[in-house]
Nucleic acid binder design. Structure first.
Length: 658
RNA sequence: GCGCCCGUAGCUCAGUUGGAUAGAGCAACCGCCUUCUAAGCGGUAGGUCAGUGGUUCGAAUCCACUCGGGCGCACCA
């Protein structure tokens, strides 16, 4: 019994442990076979199933059902499960005993952690996420990194790991040259005094647009001739196309044309944008070599120019404050915000160290690390002497390993940068950084309903703040509607605003987190704030319904007597809810196995779903006996804790009344 | 040209790394509020898992090829 108590944290592991002994009588290494014990695919098979008998049959040359039988006979599981059943070709099906469920629910009742005790194998994990560029407003693209990274940090901390969340902001890049140039040439002083960040963003955008204008204009005829060439090539190819191979080439040529023509169209559009505005055109003509001059400003900044550094120090604080405003609203905290600038002094040392170890060498004027299997080199210093983000990232790794003593470093970054990270990790290993575990926790692009990266109608990226405002105002409408429908509304205006914030932000975060992170995901307002289905609201609603039960019965959840109550798991709904609650530890462990928060959303949805059925079928107020009512109250309370805790690991809040 | 990823229901997505009859939400249709929040519950319908071949007791999952789509690829981060 003691054993059950200690290792219940992850119910599956508890069961797996019991198979080790019996399996050892048949094989030397039971580990791979133990892994083949899984949650059952279908409730009719019980809660767990063991799938190892079939592959083992081949290895041992015995019928699988016989092997299953042999193992089943040796199993000592009767404190947990009913007698194992052998089914189909040789599956072992396990069904949890009602007495076990009842006892375990009783044991963890009233516990916000649902019986999950902190790990004894604590790791020191640095999580690098969000990483916006300073002085460029955050947009929808930053949302995924921020939300996923935060969820991972929270879950790691919950399990008991030492976590350092680090916002590796872009505060040193080429955009600062543009801003400095803009500041010197186009500053609107009144606007800067009023809203410095907005004005800096405007300057950045302006300088960028003008640089672009000149570059595009210079490039336009080339683009046009490339487009024309592509068309000619297609026509000749079309005339000659005979076999399938040629046909395939035609297709790829057609795609080339499409791309070339789009490039021309985009170029013309961006030129038009400038030329259609007299002010912009005048500015463009007055600053013909704006791009080079902006680059010069960056170089001056990096080489220690006093004036530019003064400006930089002046720009940074309001920009950081603007970022923090967004993070505060999202409920996200960083342990440190060490931007690229922080690592600037270390960059020469990184390069010379790589050179001294014969890892980096000069190629076409740039200092590069060549890696096996990679066509492109990893450039650590450009021909003009400037360092790249590769260099910064290496310096950052060194800092995280040496100063932060990291065992593991996670990078929550767009999957399009996977080659960079593959090269970075490979270089770091060659460099001799030690036994740190690196992982690029990659994620896909946020798409619009049109299947293209999410943009506003005018083609701009969507600002993060307006996105949050939109979510909250949509949520407010729903909250208003719902509360107005009641005979006597339960919420004051201030409470409605608070609930709208919780529901709106929760909806946005949940929508993102419930997709597996690798895939691109389609941003859809109607879905994330729908009043039906698999949304944050569904869980929040389930939570509020529990609160409603206690409110109606004039009981307080805080003073609920949870110990000494016998938990009933007689009805299918009670049973399912109990099983779900006990699977919490497994869900948490699955999330951290490969940093996939969506496995937690799945568990949350299943749990809320189990509760909804329970709510429908198992009345608390009208339970047949006082004993049963107590049992159900404890289940309700535990389910509310489960939802609150689970959502909190995703950075999502709950409300007593919805 | 080289490399990586993807293709599952009308739509949006899962599918626990090779297991039993491929699942959920939305949309559609049918039912359920005098009892704890109907933002809910129950049910029906919906599939050539892009295609072909292979590996084996067993494949959406692994391998090969084909078709279709996306994304990277020396001095931007």
């Amino acid at each position: 019994m003691r054993r059950v108590f200690e290792s219940l944290m992850n119910l599956l592991n508890l069961i797996r442990d019991r198979f080790v002994g019996p399996l050892k009588t048949l094989v030397d290494d039971p580990a791979p076979f133990v892994d083949m014990i899984r949650p059952a695919q279908d409730a009719k098979f019980g809660e767990f199933q063991a799938n190892f008998a079939m592959p083992l049959a081949k290895q041992l040359g015995k019928p699988p059902r016989e092997i299953a039988q042999t193992i089943a006979q040796q199993l000592q599981l009767d404190d947990i499960c009913e007698t194992p059943e052998i089914a189909g070709p040789g599956f072992i099906n396990l069904r949890l005993k009602a007495s076990f469920l009842s006892a375990q629910i009783g044991r963890i009742s009233g516990d916000d952690r649902l019986g999950y005790s902190p790990t004894s194998s604590r790791r020191n994990v640095v999580v690098d996420f969000s990483s916006p560029n300073v002085a460029k407003p955050m947009h929808v693209g930053h949302l995924r990194s921020t939300v996923i990274g935060d969820a991972i940090c929270r879950t790691l901390r919950f399990v008991g790991h030492q976590v350092v969340s680090d916002n590796h902001i872009g505060d040193w890049g080429t955009q600062f040259g543009m801003i400095i140039y803009g500041y010197r040439n186009f500053l609107d002083e009144a606007a800067y005094a009023e809203q410095p960040v907005a004005e800096l963003a405007r300057l950045y955008k302006l300088v960028n647009q003008l640089s672009d204008y000149h570059a595009t204009k210079a490039k336009l005829t080339t683009l046009q001739s490339e487009s024309a060439t592509a068309r000619t090539r297609l026509e000749t190819a079309e005339a000659q196309a005979k076999d399938d191979k040629a046909k395939k080439q035609l297709n790829s040529l057609r795609k080339d044309i499409e791309a070339a023509e789009k490039a021309v169209k985009d170029a013309i559009e961006s030129i038009e944008k400038v030329e259609s505005s007299p002010t912009l055109l005048k500015a463009a003509q007055a600053h013909p070599d704006i791009a080079r001059k902006a680059r010069d400003e960056t170089a001056k900044l990096h080489s220690g120019d006093a004036d530019n550094n003064t400006l930089w120090h002046q720009f940074i604080p309001p920009c950081l404050e603007a970022l923090n405003q967004v993070y505060r609203r999202l409920g996200i905290k960083f342990d440190m915000t060490l931007g690229e600038s922080y690592f600037n002094p270390m960059l020469p040392g990184v390069v010379s160290s790589l050179q001294s170890k014969n890892l980096a060498k000069l190629s076409e004027g740039a200092t590069c690390v060549f890696l096996e299997g990679n066509a492109a080199p990893f450039i650590v210093q450009k021909t003009d002497g400037a360092y790249t983000y590769a260099t910064t990232d290496l310096a950052t790794i060194q800092y995280r390993v040496e100063s932060l003593k990291a065992d593991e470093v996670l990078y929550v970054v767009d999957k399009r940068q996977s080659e960079h990270f593959q090269q970075l990790f490979a270089t770091a290993c060659l460099w001799g950084i030690g036994t740190v575990r690196f992982q690029h926790v990659s994620f896909g692009t946020v798409m619009g309903k049109d299947g293209k990266p999410y943009k506003t109608r005018s083609g701009d990226t969507v600002g993060l703040e307006s996105l949050l405002d939109e979510a909250v105002s949509r949520a407010r409408r729903i909250v208003d509607e719902n509360d107005d429908r009641r005979e006597s509304p339960l919420l004051t205006s201030e409470e409605r605003a608070r609930v709208a914030e919780i529901v709106g932000l929760g909806g946005i975060k949940y929508a993102d987190l419930h997709h597996s992170r690798d895939s691109d995901y389609t941003f859809d307002w109607d879905k994330m704030l729908a009043t039906t289905g698999d949304t944050a609201t569904y869980m929040q609603y389930a939570y509020a319904r529990v609160c409603g039960i206690f409110r109606k019965m004039q009981l307080s959840r805080d003073s609920l007597q949870t110990s000494g109550v016998t938990i009933s798991v007689e009805t299918p709904e009670e049973r399912r809810l109990a099983v779900q609650l006990l699977m919490f530890g497994y869900a948490i462990d699955s999330v951290l196995n490969d940093y996939r928060p969506h496995l937690l959303t799945t568990w949350l949805y299943d749990t809320a779903d189990a509760f909804s059925q329970f709510f429908d079928k198992c009345s608390v107020q009208n339970a047949g006996s006082e004993e049963l009512r107590k049992s159900r109250l404890v289940l309700c309370d535990l389910m509310a804790r489960a939802i609150k805790t689970g959502l909190s690991l995703l950075g999502i809040e709950v409300a007593e009344v919805l």
